[in-house]
Amino acid sequence: MLLGMAATDPAPVTLVTGDEELLADRAVGEVIAAVRAADPGAEVVDLAGGKVESGEVTRLTSPSLFGDRSVVVIRSAQDLAKDVASEIVSYAANPADDAVLVLVHPGGVKGKALVDGVKKAGARVVTVSRLTKPAERLAFVKAELKRAGRTVGADAAGALLDAVGNDLRELAAACSQLAFDTPGKVIDEAAVARYHRGRAEVSGFTVADSAIAGRLGDALEQVRWALATGTAPVLLVSALARGLRSLAKVGGAPRNLRGGQLAAHLGMPPWQVGRVQEQLNGWGPEGIARALQAVAAADEQVKGGGADPAYALERAVQTIVASRDGR
């Protein structure tokens, strides 16, 4: 990945494209660091795309009288005016020797002509796309701590992710803080637990899973967490309904169907069918029916039929848990 990259001799033109700000900043920082390593007196000019005037880039990249190197960073390159963009594209085909140009573009359609033109001119391209999968974030945490010369176990990294959330800046900050605060080489779960507690983000599905599994305490705590961190009550209710609905579907499916056939019959992916079958433990048809009724009542209350959405949700969760073992 980009983190281990050591840019010894920076390319004359670098295009950083992607929507993950932290990584984009780092890519820019690395180029600057590489230039400074060669020439500590290099001048850095940081510009915002919308404010660059035509001719400015040419002026900044033209050789200076004293032979200093310079770095020109243009952020939000999608906002560049058309004539400036074409000026940059033609510069990229024919860059100056003692200047380094860095363009930061968030991806997307706006200003695509610039991106394509610069790529065609042979600029170095760094892609920093947003990390969407949990595994990628886990890898990010590990790499962060490794940079700080530490190692971390998968469980500790997972605990940190749960507690801090998905924002990379916050994760990076938490990692460097942890590396600073804890002694020893390995950062374990206890160390994470000493500084971070609880969950940053609770989705409706977490609540639904806890409630369906009958963990009343967990489920109620998660409801409060989710509400406190700004999840809309309606989303929690619909997640509960969805969980129970799949219980009803899988539980009511014909007994002679198995595996792939069952999944096709229900219109669900096979892994989900397997999970729901595990959850069905302890559920009977009447219990599922009662729980679904409670959820419908909660939806009405959450949408203005009741005084307090939080109460309606807690009550629904309680009814769901109490409806288990209704065989």
Partner: peptide, 10 residues
Amino acid sequence: NVNPQMAVEA
């Protein structure tokens, strides 16, 4: 304004 699916299910 209850979600139609939920209301009809109930």
